[in-house]
């Protein structure tokens, strides 16, 4: 089987470290080979796009070209912002001849192959389509003993390209988690923006966006939120202490990456899932996962 090309992006090497660990552990358990793209560069995300669109597309295209050079058919982009920019580059190269020729000429000048359609994929969709719910269900070795979770999809993964899941009502994460026996709650805010970079640039407004999402999750009876994007996870995880201080609420809930729950259920080494990287809800995490560890060791 041809390995999936892997584009970590900057967050998975810093604030989103738990995402990278759990993603790679999960793919190992499922025997899906993954190969990191050598010398990948920044995807050209939001901030870069705000200065210079043309070179953002060229920058992004270098990653696609490197993936092709390595012989990959599929390029995994776990971060929603990376996924969107890579996908948008392909789309704009195809739709606008001027952008297309600029990108292809730049690639030629750098000795890279012209773009010819490597597929940009997000792990959520790979697990749903390539692996499938049936196979996931049959591979479960650890029953879920944690609380009810709210599946939060965020924005850029489902908009404007609705290839990973439906734009207005995505359900694939809910289905995957149901397959491992984790109860999910109805969460109408599942595609509302988390505030993105605003927590850094206009902090009070960004944190308010985080609060709206967390409060609604609590109201719907969730004891944890599950995310598919490193920025969503960071925003919802890192600002809970501040939210408690400012609002007088008692919110302290874990914010997971979906790969952590799936990896756990399918028998990945608990140490390899980055669960200790959590900032909030550490008590719940210790309870839900640690009480299993003696039993878990028997499975691994």
């Amino acid at each position: 089987m041809k390995p999936y090309g892997y584009f970590p992006g900057c967050s998975l090497r810093g604030t989103g470290a738990g995402y990278e660990y759990s993603l790679l552990a999960l793919f190992r358990v499922l025997d899906l080979p993954v190969e990191e793209i050598q010398d990948w560069n920044c995807c050209g995300a939001t901030s870069y796009m705000s200065i210079d669109e043309e070179s953002a597309f060229v920058l992004s295209a270098r990653n696609l070209a490197l993936a092709q050079k390595a012989g990959c058919k599929d390029l995994l982009a776990p971060c929603s912002a990376c996924y969107l920019v890579l996908r948008k580059t392909q789309d704009y190269v195809a739709r606008y001849p001027k952008i297309g020729s600029h990108v292809q000429e730049s690639l030629r000048a750098a000795g890279l192959p012209p773009l010819n359609g490597v597929r940009v994929r997000h792990p959520l969709e790979v697990l749903y389509s390539d692996v499938g719910l049936e196979r996931i269900r049959s591979r479960v070795v650890r029953p879920w003993r944690g609380g009810r979770v709210a599946c939060y999809y965020g924005c850029q993964l489902v908009r404007p390209y609705d290839e990973v899941d439906r734009a207005h009502n995505p359900t694939r994460m809910d289905e995957l988690l149901a397959a491992i026996g984790a109860p999910t709650v109805d969460y109408p805010l599942k595609t509302l923006c988390c505030g993105g970079a605003l927590t850094g640039t206009m902090h009070p407004i960004g944190v308010r966006m985080n609060y709206i999402l967390l409060k609604e999750a609590v109201r719907k009876g969730a004891q944890a939120v599950v995310t598919v994007c490193p920025l969503c996870q960071y925003n919802l995880d890192a600002h809970q202490a501040e939210i408690r201080r400012k609002t007088g609420t008692t919110i302290d809930m874990p914010v997971f990456f979906f790969t952590q729950l799936l990896g756990w259920a399918l028998g990945a080494d608990p140490e390899s899932l980055g669960l200790k990287r959590a900032i909030s809800g550490r008590k719940s995490i210790a309870q839900w996962f640690a009480k299993e560890s003696a039993e878990a060791d028997a499975y691994v």
Binding site: D39, V58, A110
Partner: peptide
């Protein structure tokens, strides 16, 4: 501090090897 405590803050200055390739990619 929360990020340091949970091992999520990296002080490394990330850079790629192919910076010359970036120059060649005229725009980038």
């Amino acid at each position: 501090w929360d990020l340091v405590r949970t091992g999520r803050l990296s002080l490394r200055r990330e850079r790629i090897h192919g910076t010359s390739e970036l120059v060649a990619l005229s725009g980038a």
